[in-house]
């Protein structure tokens, strides 16, 4: 994956040099190791700032809306699916974005790596399939595949579904026999145990809305949680309000979520908010055979009526 950064920089340089695009949206190194952050580059001299490695877990499709002029964006498999969703939902026009596709081998679970160290991580390096991580007290060499994020481990769309240029060779797609083991595990519990599971899951939520802000699907001008007239949900730490927020946030993503993992990546309290959205992803797949963002020509299931729609829930 580290070899493709040269290619990404080269493509970005060419695009800006020929003035084909006004900006390039990509990742740059953050202020601390493993904290790559999104960056917008408008000048060709700055293309050296672009990086791409296994810590680029956020979703850049989140930053392509409401841009003036043509923009280029670096897109992993999941990002590209969210770009498709944006185009379907008229948030951006296809000819306004130049997509630099990056076949992806998965992003790493930073909290899992941090938990191996008692002190702060000072250095992160990637060498093929291994990660070399250093703190002041020790140095660890880890196998990347052992530390993948859960959504990347179960990902079946690692290659971009839509792109103008590729920055690397296409990778082999994983074939996953049981794509939703986590959802099935929760579903096997009794109703009360499921309730306790979700209570435990959200008990540390501080309502910072980082999950919502990191999500490319959440682009309402005023989010329901911010509205005051009417006020749909309380703004404090009451557990019912927290549950309502998570439940509705997930529901707004039904049939649109690509399980890119940006929500869980952004959460400062390490809450796996994907437990909510994954259930809906599984349902839309089971009921409509739908996976979001794969086809520019198809309307999402909650957007279109078909006489074959399952309707056993209504009397």
């Amino acid at each position: 994956m580290d070899t493709c950064i040269q290619k990404i920089r080269e493509i970005a340089f060419q695009l800006l040099d020929k003035k084909e695009v006004e900006k390039v949206i990509g990742f740059s190194n953050g202020t601390i190791p493993m904290a790559t952050s999104p960056i917008t580059i408008a000048s060709k001299q700055d293309t050296e700032k672009l990086v791409f490695n296994s810590t680029c877990g956020l979703n850049l499709a989140n930053y392509i809306r409401q841009q003036k002029g043509k923009i280029a964006v670096i897109a992993k498999g999941c990002d590209s699916r969210n770009i498709v969703t944006h185009i379907i939902e008229n948030q951006v026009k296809r000819d306004q974005v130049y997509i630099i596709g990056v076949p992806c081998n998965g992003m790493i679970n930073k909290s899992k790596i941090k938990s191996l160290f008692e002190d702060e991580i000072q250095k992160f390096e990637e060498d093929g399939d291994s990660l070399i991580i250093e703190s002041s007290s020790k140095k660890e060499k880890l196998k990347k595949n052992d530390y993948l994020r859960e959504n990347c481990r179960l990902c079946q769309h690692r290659n971009p579904v839509i792109y103008d240029v590729l920055a690397g060779d296409l990778v082999k797609e994983q074939i996953i026999d049981v794509p939703y083991p986590d959802v099935e595990k929760i579903a096997a519990l009794e109703a009360d145990a499921r309730w306790i599971h979700f209570q435990d899951l959200t008990k540390n939520c501080i309502r910072c809305y980082a999950c919502r802000n990191a999500c490319p699907l959440c682009y309402c001008p005023t989010c329901f949680v911010d509205e005051s007239g009417p006020q749909w949900v309380g703004k404090g730490q009451d557990k019912t309000d927290i549950n309502t927020f998570h439940f509705l946030r997930a529901f707004h993503c039904a049939g649109r979520c690509t399980d890119c993992g940006a929500c869980a990546e952004a959460c400062p309290m390490d809450i796996n908010v994907r437990d909510f959205t994954r259930k809906l992803n599984k349902d839309t797949f089971d009921m409509f055979g739908w996976e979001a963002g794969l086809d520019l020509t198809k309307r999402p299931p909650l957007d279109a009526y078909s006489p074959d729609d399952p309707n056993d829930f209504i009397k």
């Binding site: 109703a191 499921r194 439940f247 909510f276 829930f313």
Partner: peptide, 20 residues
């Protein structure tokens, strides 16, 4: 929506949808 509420542990029989 009913499915997700049920998944969260709300009893299915509390949630009803109808068109009348």
């Amino acid at each position: 929506m009913g499915n997700l509420l049920e998944h969260m542990g709300i009893e299915r029989d509390r949630i009803h949808f109808s068109w009348i």
